[in-house]
Structures are given as structure tokens and as C-alpha cells.
């Protein structure tokens, strides 16, 4: 994980200084660089861009892509869209919750895994779908989840 540096945040802010409404672009870049948006960082963004902090907070909590808390090393996304749901996606999600001992939207205390739900990946034909660190896995079952988690553990 990249370390919080005021200099770097300034660089990112400066990059968007010609943008008339830079808030979202700046937040996206900070999110992808740091993996999350700590409160102090958002206060700085609010002051620099002259956007009320309440509005920055609104935007940060509205979009799924932003996180106010540190993300785990591996991000596991379980699809709960309609097609995956009718194919048993909810059991896959429940199994992930049990295995990782966290709720959806949470990160394990060792910062290894973050579990998220996602509403549709457009991969309905292979549902239930699970995405691990950006890699799509189709036709998921509880036993396949076990293999998947073992594989991630071995590789890291």
C-alpha cells in the first residue's frame, strides 16, 4: 500500500487544476493510488478544491468505487445481480462470509481480504460469478470457493 504523502496529494490535485469540476477525477485517482480515502485526505481535497466537506463525503459514500477504509490485499467481489441470485449466488456469498468471517463491505482484520457485493458484471451466462482481484470466475459453488481461496493463499 502506498503511504500517505501530502506532496503526492498535491501533485494529483495540481494535475486536475484545469478541470472545472475536478472532484470526481481527483477522488478516483486518490482511490486507485491509495486504495482508500482517509478522512484527512478528503478534508485536504475539500479545502483545496473549495468544495464543502459534506459534499465530498456525500460523493465518497455514494459511489461503490470509493472506500473510506483501507482495502484488503485481495478484493473478492460476489455478484448478487438477478441472474446470479437465481443461480444460487446468495449461497456463494454466504459461504464467503463464513470462510472469511466478515460481512459484505468489510475487510479482514489482517488486511488480507475485502469482501464486496456487486450488482451485475454482465457475465450472467456463467453465474454465479465471483471476481477475485479483477479476475472473473464463473459457475461458482461453495466447494469451488474453497479451492479459489486456497489458490489465493498459496500464490501470496
Amino acid at each position: 500500500m502506498n503511504h500517505f504523502s501530502i506532496q503526492n496529494i498535491r501533485t494529483i490535485l495540481n494535475k486536475h487544476k484545469d478541470n472545472k469540476t475536478p472532484l470526481l477525477a481527483v477522488m478516483e485517482e486518490l482511490q486507485s493510488y491509495y486504495g482508500y480515502l482517509p478522512r484527512e485526505m478528503l478534508i485536504m481535497v475539500s479545502e483545496r478544491l473549495d468544495v464543502p466537506l459534506s459534499q465530498v463525503h456525500s460523493v465518497a459514500t455514494f459511489y461503490h468505487g470509493f472506500s473510506l477504509h483501507p482495502q484488503g490485499e485481495h478484493v473478492i467481489q460476489a455478484c448478487t445481480g438477478t441472474a446470479c441470485h437465481v443461480r444460487g449466488g446468495i449461497h456463494v456469498l454466504d459461504h464467503l462470509k463464513t470462510k472469511l468471517n466478515i460481512q459484505a463491505g468489510e475487510t479482514t482484520s489482517d488486511l488480507e481480504y475485502t469482501l464486496e457485493t456487486i450488482n451485475c458484471l454482465g457475465a450472467c451466462a456463467v453465474g454465479p460469478t465471483v471476481v477475485t482481484d479483477g479476475k472473473y470466475e464463473g459457475h461458482m459453488t461453495t466447494s469451488k470457493i474453497d479451492h479459489l481461496l486456497e489458490k489465493i493463499e498459496q500464490e501470496s
Binding site: P52, L53, S54, Q55, H57, S58, T61, F62
Partner: peptide, 10 residues
Amino acid sequence: GMSAISIANR
């Protein structure tokens, strides 16, 4: 003119 509160989440 203060924007001290806002709607969070969705």
C-alpha cells in the same frame, strides 16, 4: 450557505 450536512450513502 454552510453545507454542514449532506446525504450520505445511497
